[in-house]
Amino acid sequence: MPESAAPVTIVPPIPIGTWLETGFTWFKQTFDALFDVIGDLITGAINGIADPLLALDPLVLAIILALLGWLLRNWKLGVGTLVGLVLIIGMDMWEPAVETLALVVVATVVALILGIPLGILAARSPVVSRIVKPVMDFMQTMPGMVWLLPVLKLFSIGVAGALVATVIFALPPAVRLTELGIRQVDGEVVEAGQAFGAGPRQILKDIQLPLALPTVMAGVNQVIMLALSMAVIAGLVGGGGLGNEVVGAISTLNLARGFDAGISVVILAIFLDRLTASIGSRRPGHGRLRELRERFTRTPATAASAS
């Protein structure tokens, strides 16, 4: 049939991308000054973390991180961390690795500062929840690299844009799992709080958040993992660090350098994952600090009686 020969003509052109770009351009022009300030702040924060770390002797920092792994989890993570970090030093990837670490840390902190309160709001208000859900879906399913474009336009090449793209990409699990964690808290336990005359804020602080903590921490873990993967991709827009190394290796077809950088990313990923997973899986009701104090103040006698 003649109609079916030209179906394209039936649907008018729908240039969603162009519309978005137009809106985006207006947005950029209107808030340009603001983005300059934000960009400076971000760059300052990341350098503020990376510079002191880099000022330390690599081996000293590696030992400190290994100790952290031991304290928060066990001696195995401590040893593994030390071995991994020494490998990174040996591959001459230390400086980019620390830069990436700084980027991941800042991105995670920002994502949590935005994501956890948003998750709390979503858990308390069905309206907020209904709005937040599709937005999070959109942010997460959009291929990560696409976020690089608007960010690049707003901040031009540099670490600030890389960070914003990383935050956007890593934010959803923080919101989702905070909301989920709070919603999962047994309704009768919350009612118990109300029945004894606790206010909404007390219930949030004393009941909902502590009980949601394992789930929230699972979200934090995911945020960190996503931030790490995006921080590497952000090497394309001048994110620096290991991403920069990867991009450089690709453009020069340098297989050795590519693998060095890639393996460094893997080591960082394992370290961060194990470290945060251990925080999430701890026993409820036992503060990490208290547990640590117990572990170190326990005399042989009390240790024997406790077991």
Partner: peptide, 28 residues
């Protein structure tokens, strides 16, 4: 009113699982 007049025991206990027994009892 709730603090001063009325407290409740729940069918399925509804204890705070993250608090010690004494901190549960002290909640009111």
């Amino acid at each position: 009113l709730r603090r001063q007049r009325i407290s409740m025991v729940f069918q399925h206990f509804a204890l705070f699982p993250h608090r010690s027994v004494i901190d549960n009892a002290a909640y009111g």
